[in-house]
Amino acid sequence: MDQLLQFLISGLTVGSIYALVALGFSIIYNASDVVNFAQGEFVMIGAMSAIFLMKAGLSYPFAALLAIAITAGVGLALEKFAIEPAKNATVVSTIIITIGASIFLRGAALLIWGKEIYGLPPFTSNNPIKIGNATILPQNLWVMMGTAVTVLAVKYFFDRTRMGKAILACSYNKKAAYLVGIDVKKMLLVAYGLSAALGSAAGLLVTPITFMSYGAGVMLGLKGFCAAILGGMGNSMGAVLGGILLGIVETVGAGFISSGYKDAIAFFVILLVLFVKPSGILGKGETERV
């Protein structure tokens, strides 16, 4: 029982990170019908920028903010230079383009930061808090709370602000959005910037727990994709739910089976979901018109 509680705590922590990545996935997918395989690189760039800004002497909060800004800039550049020029690309083409972008960004990170593994200090003191026989680190709480706040802010942005609604309008029907005077190009840029910022936030939150290197974004990105599908592709809150579920299932599974198979368990779950209900937990099916 205590063991289960411990697994739940770690699961919820990892799940929160997946949730943020998945949320970024679904924002881009909604706005542009593109599955962005470079999403994991946003996580890596956010964390690595912060690490090196701190090494350069910046204070933690300032380095973190600047890192988020840098990553958002990378997101904007991705949209502007890779997605926008390939307007009528097929699904397969956009998959390849974003894979190319992810390799490119990883290559750039390798050049700038090298192959070493880095960490970030925890946000606050690192004394474990006891809950029964299970322990929770303050950083775990930071991850969960940080995710909760970010998700709520994103939800507010899409539900309440004009710009958020404009992006949603683009996702339903680009032509109609354009006709009612929405600057579709700008909204796409905002979506990519926002999504990148979310990725970098995930990177900042998780690095004090798991460390970071130039290649660490790949698996996080793929897990985010898994989570987005689990929740229902294109459903933002579904993505968050999917992320948290995936984190818990994976951690509990790894705990009871074998930690080496942790990633395999996650993908196995996704395969099952795809075989049984491809539209995910909160997604709707589609029908073709002939």
Binding site: A82, P85, A86, I99, G100, I103, F104, L110, L111
Partner: peptide, 20 residues
């Protein structure tokens, strides 16, 4: 040398964007 990964990614993107 170290540019290998970067150039590889770049080639991939450029071909896909301009010669889909």
């Amino acid at each position: 040398e170290d540019f290998e990964v970067l150039v590889f990614g770049l080639i991939l993107m450029v071909i896909m964007i301009f010669l889909p």
